[in-house]
């Protein structure tokens, strides 16, 4: 089968999900001796082609249209490419921007859509399930065919415009630079209990971070959030306290050297990843840990 995968970029950088798409697309094409086509829409197309030109890619289509992602442009461009390439399967990133155009593309082309795919098998149709990461190590080949494609974008159909970008606020703490992170999640139950985790971070001379619900509740500023929509962190030690370990959170901290989990639920997914764990009540363990290091646990 012919597979068409759409690369993703943002603010001048190709995003890694592009390689994951290409890997998945190559596997799928291989199952049926088919071709893998990639498409780059907008941005620094030439530079992106250099990076995407690897063994296993048959054709790269470039559509030199605009700098940043715009879904009105993407929907038109993918539709036009679909008519040109006639692929059996379209692969788009399950990213915030992917989810901003893939459902519209599927609806316009009357194609079935599956989001959040973590495995795709060709079984006559497609059986979609589980996860695959990364790009097989390969040298750049330079022999991939690159085709500039004129998608004939109708500018009057572009009814939204990016006016800028901004980093989330909360002061100048950068949790991605921390050597030791003490991270708090939903298990802390109440805003006033955050003081307990703050005290631990202070005692250990560590930096305080959190999972999404804590930030959504306004208990900590956005720049403390670890995860897909927050920061990616790679500390020496990551202590997850009252964090269940949803995939969105794990995406942000799986690169930590040593992961410690403190959670009452021994089935919590955080334990699939943790090197060390304490399956007990954080309100008893954390004060004891603060005392171990000579600190004074606050009353909560």
């Amino acid at each position: 089968m012919t597979v068409l995968a759409i690369a993703e970029h943002r603010r001048g950088e190709l995003r890694d999900v592009s390689f994951e798409l290409a890997t998945a697309g190559r596997d799928l094409a291989d199952a049926t001796d088919g071709d893998l086509h990639l498409a780059v829409i907008g941005g620094a197309v030439e530079a992106f082609v250099d990076r995407l030109d690897r063994e296993g890619v048959d054709v790269i289509h470039t559509i030199d249209e605009g700098e940043e992602f715009n879904h009105d442009v993407y929907v038109q461009a993918v539709e036009a490419l679909y008519d040109e390439v006639e692929p059996d399967t379209l692969l788009m990133p399950n990213s915030v921007n992917g989810l901003d155009y893939a459902p519209a593309v599927a609806n316009r082309l009357s194609l079935p859509l599956v989001t959040d795919a973590i495995d795709i098998e060709h079984d006559g149709g497609l059986a979609v399930t589980r996860e695959k990461y990364g790009w097989p190590p390969a040298e750049g080949t330079d022999d991939t065919e690159v085709r500039a494609f004129d998608a004939d974008i109708d500018e009057s159909a572009v009814r939204s415009a990016v006016t800028g970008f901004q980093e989330v606020g909360g002061g100048d703490v950068d949790i991605s630079e921390a050597e030791v992170l003490v991270s708090v999640g939903r298990g802390i139950e109440d805003e006033e209990n955050i003081a307990l985790i703050e005290a631990l971070a202070e005692t250990l001379d560590a930096t305080l971070s959190s999972s999404r619900p804590i930030v959504d509740n306004g208990w900590l500023p956005k720049n403390r959030q670890v995860g897909q929509s927050g920061k990616q962190v790679t500390p020496e030690v990551y202590i997850a306290i009252g964090i269940s370990g949803a995939v969105q959170h794990v995406a942000g901290m799986k690169g930590a050297e040593t992961i410690v989990a403190i959670n009452t639920d021994s089935n919590a997914p955080i334990y699939d990843l943790a090197d060390y764990g304490i399956v007990d009540d954080l309100f008893e363990v954390v004060p004891a840990l603060i005392e171990e290091f000579g600190g004074e646990p606050p009353e909560v």
Binding site: V96, R159, S160, Q166, V168, R212
Partner: peptide, 24 residues
């Protein structure tokens, strides 16, 4: 729009429109 990695995209959208709302 809340993008990955602690970055927000600022966008003007003409009405009528559909907006999907994020928690927080």
């Amino acid at each position: 729009r809340e993008l990955e990695g602690g970055v927000e995209e600022l966008t003007d959208v003409e009405l009528p429109a559909v907006l999907t709302i994020q928690t927080g």
